[in-house]
Simulated scan of single mutants.
Amino acid sequence: MTRIIDGNAIASDIEADVQASVETLRDAGVQPGLATVLMSDDGASETYVSMKQQACDDLGIDGRHHEIDADAPADDLFDRIDDLNADESVHGILVQMPVPDHVEKRAVLERIDPEKDVDGFHPENVGRLVAGNARYKPCTPHGVQKILAAEGIETEGKEAVVVGRSDIVGKPMANLFIQYGDGGNATTTVCHSRTDDLAAKTREADILVAAAGVPEMIDGEMVKEGATVIDVGINRVDADTEKGYELVGDVDFESAKAKAGAITPVPGGVGPLTIAMLLYNTVKAASRQSGVGVDLA
């Protein structure tokens, strides 16, 4: 029987540890704080930020949301980031992507204080990750590691294939798989839009991570018998539903489930872990900046 991985349950366990660490910090007079910044009229981005703020409220983190008009000059965003960098009550800063075309994304990421970069996207933090000394692991790839650990799925010596090479998921995921230590030591292949005979590569995977942003591009014929399939994709496709759409992953769930040993659904798989690890990083940042130790696995 294929095991359907319950991301919500795994995220709940992590959030319980995060909440205990929040209480430890608060007992020491430190209130962990996360600032989210939105410079967009995109409805999906608004929803994502709202979910992150609600999660802060649920766990006792001081969530503060800042909105900047999408047509405002780029300096308005940079000035706000500077203010948050200087605010000692703010331990983590997240600028929701995408930003408008007139704002350079890389400049935004570089503007955030690396100690407050709880997404792990500042070049300094990327470098530390590659060097094997991560300050904050990017939330979604770290969440994938937590899923594998919770399910008892060993990575050492396994063939891991990552489909997608984004800075947010694909690249850091591959880097985590090849690191020494728990959750690493895998032989890792990164595939992308220019990969010849993608199916031949994915069929070699003991652990297959789909993170290309293409609805249901991975089907059962591309999955090795008994493989672990981790579907990072969240795609809206037209459907005869009340909303007029449904959410699907980068994996054709039904056909892949017939071959996989374990698989994450969409929704309810990787998604909950992304937010849980953001809160994890925020509490870790508060601990680092205050010098108050916490017990985070």
Rank of each mutant, 00 (worst) to 15 (best):
D238P: 04
I218C: 09
A227I: 00
M217L: 14
V232W: 13
N175F: 13
K224I: 08
E216G: 03
G213C: 04
P172N: 05
T195R: 15
E225T: 03
D196C: 00
G213A: 06
K201H: 15
I207M: 11
A186M: 03
T241A: 09
V214R: 15
G213K: 01
Y180G: 12
V169P: 04
I178H: 01
V190D: 12
S193A: 09
I218N: 10
V209E: 07
V232K: 08
E216R: 07
V223R: 07
S193M: 06
D238K: 06
E204I: 00
A212W: 08
V237A: 05
Q179Y: 08
D197R: 07
A212E: 07
D238S: 07
D197A: 11
T189Y: 10
V229S: 12
K171Y: 05
D240C: 03
I207N: 09
G183A: 02
T202D: 09
M217A: 02
G220P: 11
A239W: 07
E221K: 06
I207V: 10
D238V: 01
L198D: 08
E204S: 09
A199N: 06
E221S: 15
A212I: 01
E204D: 14
T241I: 03
A199Q: 12
I230C: 08
V190T: 05
I218V: 10
P172W: 12
A239R: 03
K171W: 06
M173Q: 13
D219Y: 02
D182I: 02
L176S: 02
T195E: 14
I178P: 00
G213S: 02
T195L: 15
M173S: 06
L208T: 00
D240H: 04
D197V: 02
E225G: 02
F177M: 15
A211L: 13
